[in-house]
Structure formats: C-alpha cells, structure tokens
Design a protein around this nucleic acid. Sequence first.
DNA 1: AGCCAGGCCCAAC
DNA 2: GTTGGGCATGGC
Length: 291
Amino acid sequence: MDRYTVEIRKDFNLDHIFDCGQCFRWERQEDGSYTGIAFNKVVNMQYKDHLLTITNSNEEEFESIWRQYLDLDTDYGQIKDCLNEWDHVISDATLYGHGIRILKQEPWEALISFIISQNNNIPRIKGCIEGLCRSFGKPLGSFFGKERYAFPTLEALDKATEADLGPIKLGYRAKYITETSRALVAGTGTEGLNRLTQKNVTSQQAYDAITQFKGVGPKVANCILLFGLGKVDSFPIDVWVARIMNHLYHFDERDKKAMSQYALDHFREYGGYAQQYLFYYARGLEELQKK
DNA sequence: AGCCAGGCCCAAC
DNA sequence: GTTGGGCATGGC
C-alpha cells in the first residue's frame, strides 16, 4: 500500500490529537496508530521517532489534504508560549496535552457532527456518526480490515426523512439534522459554509450565520467555528471546560459569561487552543480520579 | 439503577 | 434578556 513519511519535530501526538474530542471518526489501533477518514480518504497515521507515516496516501495527497488538516504550518510552541505568558494557570494543561493540534475539518461534517454531540457522550456520538455514514455515505471500499464509508453529503441527508434516520438513534437530534439539511439546501449549500472559513469572515459573522440552524446554540456553534471554520479564537464551554475552569480559576460552573470574558481577556486570539488544552486536561484528570 | 453526557428549544417571566 | 423544564438515547 502507498505511504508517505514526513518529519514533525515537536508539538505532535496522535493520542492528544485524535482523543481530545474534536473529531469522531478516528480509531486507535493496537500499535498506537490511528485509522480514520476525512475528505473521503481512508488512511492510517503512525507517529514514531518524530516521523509521521501516512499509509494509503502519497506526497501529493499529503500536500493537498493532510498538511492543512493536521495544521502542520502552525507553530504550536509559539501558541503555548503566548498562552502561558498571558495566563499563569494554564501551564499544566499545555504540558499535559502538549501534542494537541486543532484539525481543520470539513465545515459540513463539523456542522452535523456537533449537532449530534449535544447532551451526548463521546462513544455514542461516534456510534451515531458511524451509523449515519454507513446508511447515507458513499462506500469507499475495504481498508485496514473494514468496509469504510464517506461522511454523507448534504444532498444525501437532505433526502433522508426523520423516519429514515430512525435506526441511527439520534433521538431528538434527528429533527435538527433534517431541518438543518433542508435549510442549507434552500440556502447557500455547503459552499456557503465553506465560504465562512475565509479570513475576511469574522468569528461573529460566522457565529450569527450558523446559529440560524435549528439545533445550533452557543456551544455547538463555537465547536463548529473552532473545528470546522478555522475560527481559532472561539472558546466552546461545555461541562468539562466549565468544570476545569471552576477547578483552576474558581468560576461558578454556571457562569458561562464570566468564563467567556476571561477567555477573551487572557487567551485572546488563541482561545480555541486554550480550550482544547483545558478540555483534554479536564478529561485526563477525571480519568486519573477514577483509578 | 440512576445519573450523566462536547446543550438546545421554547415558553414564561 | 434571562431562566427552567423537557427532551431521546445509552455509557458507565
């Protein structure tokens, strides 16, 4: 099978990247590598001795897809330095998740995925999304021992009725998916979403645009901004972030407004990175607690 | 068994 | 503009 290897010196760890709750279609393998799907490509990624090897890919795809997806042209060392200069509490979190990168995911997939994520747990979110792909996504063939499916297109989900979505067990979110698909087809289509990634579209403008969709509130919108639209200043506050902000900064867990303002003041244009370090740290602490 | 999960909608203040 | 009940489903 085709493969491509590239050196990545630092600030890169597959567990941190794929297990920090930003994406739902990557599976850890026995050997510590990850197999997953993005942009209709099935690949396996292994990182060892500062070398990233992408299997079932090549240099051309690396340059056209994976370099941007993995955000390899961003200097995370510099970002962590800034965050630690602007805030003296976050250092443990930036050390704990030192290899995190914020994936540049496809806007449409992020929109639907994070609608599904609301009031849901990560294993089940993954199950729902996989079910959607199996039922409504294009078959990509068998890779790494499994049949693989693309994420469904807007057109495919637009055609699906709520009854069609029944077996996926999305619960009350099924209606959000159908209504959002209808609205997007009637409106700007996925191209309209893609345009929101442009630099001249502000985070506020993109936020206002996507909160028009049913099922997209403040938290879901901020996740879409951060993970799908490249608005890395956005700071999604879920129960984990609220919890860790309470623990580290002594905010009332319900006071989202105060936490957002703190993020604005201390994490500034890097709010999204700070949020991911905090989220991953919060879940890591919880994991330790359980032992 | 019962609480919880990457919350949102909508009605009632 | 804010607050709170209701909500589908299943992980743990």
